[in-house]
């Protein structure tokens, strides 16, 4: 399994006059979680749509599970499972019926599909609601079912487009647990997210996307290191953060910076020093994509 699960070179896509992807390169090793992080409109969904064969690229080459996404579409389809941004479930059907239907469409016999449906309902804690229509479900239950459907016949590569958007904290953490377990079993997971915490918790590799390009790529640690040594937070009398200032961590740098800032903030401002978070990286990288692209 030395071959990467996903390999993308020079991928470009434009819709009309708007360039959505301007040359994307990335590699995802098999059996790892890869998070694509970026604000709305960064091109995350377009990239996932291209890799899952829904949209054809204009330029560039991409291979998923060793198969070309343009010339061997069917081969790619046999190796992947996609959970899109909107819960892709049939609202008027029960979860059991949804799972059985997907099982049959994946080539299972009726008996195999029923057995697999029951197994997944148990694993995803949906047994009690197995016979209720999905339209009565909460967002968290829907997402769980959505993920369960993707696993009816487990495929080597799983695409998750914003899997936890709109979920509460408990549901989000439950879903993270499930995703981490899938990696243990050898699955490669490619997910998009707007949440830094999610990428930080789950991903082996994080790519930050902005303006149609990957502006930074690495582990959470590497990305945090990129922004420098320490972050200074300025807090007002009510203990609210009013500004954050990235610094190298060197004493001269901090002295110089504080000397400048002290003149422009209220007298009762307090300072704190902390390690940079992924948020700082993200804001620094996506604030001005043109400049950062040269990073």
């Amino acid at each position: 399994m030395s071959q990467p699960a996903i390999e993308v070179t020079g991928l470009q896509k434009r819709f009309g006059s708007q360039a959505v992807l301007k040359g994307v390169n990335l590699k995802v090793p098999a059996g790892t979680i890869f998070a694509l992080l970026g604000p709305n409109g960064a091109g995350k969904t377009t990239l996932i749509n291209i890799l899952s064969t829904l949209t054809a690229p204009d330029e560039g080459v991409a291979k998923v599970a060793g198969r070309d996404i343009v010339s061997d579409k069917n081969g790619v389809k046999k190796s992947i499972s996609l959970t899109g941004q909107f819960a892709a479930v049939d609202e008027m059907l029960t979860p059991e019926e949804n799972l059985r239907m997907m099982g049959r469409l994946s080539g299972l016999t009726a008996a195999e599909a029923s057995a697999r449906a029951r197994e997944l309902l148990r694993q995803f804690d949906l047994v009690e609601s197995a016979r209720k229509k999905v339209k009565t479900f909460s967002g968290g239950m829907r997402r769980r079912l959505d993920l369960a459907i993707s696993l009816v016949v487990p495929k080597p590569v799983l695409f998750l487009d914003e899997p936890t958007t709109g979920l509460d904290t408990i549901s989000r953490r439950a879903l993270w647990e499930m995703i981490l377990k899938l990696r243990e079993q050898g699955m490669t997971i490619f997910l998009t997210t707007q949440y830094l915490e999610e990428a930080d918790q789950l991903a082996d590799t994080i790519a930050v996307m902005g303006g149609g390009r990957i502006v930074a790529l690495g582990t959470a640690q590497e990305l945090k290191a990129r922004i420098g040594g320490e972050v200074i937070e300025l807090r007002n009398a009510a203990d609210e953060v009013i500004r954050t200032l990235p610094t190298s961590g060197g004493i001269q740098d901090i002295r110089h910076l504080l000397g400048e800032v002290a003149l422009t903030v209220p007298q009762d401002t307090k300072i704190g020093i902390r390690k940079p978070s992924l948020d700082d990286v993200f804001l620094a990288l996506t604030a001005n994509p043109k400049e950062e692209a040269t990073l």
Partner: peptide
């Protein structure tokens, strides 16, 4: 969203 699932 379901059509995307079918199409993949």
């Amino acid at each position: 969203g379901i059509i995307d699932r079918f199409r993949t």
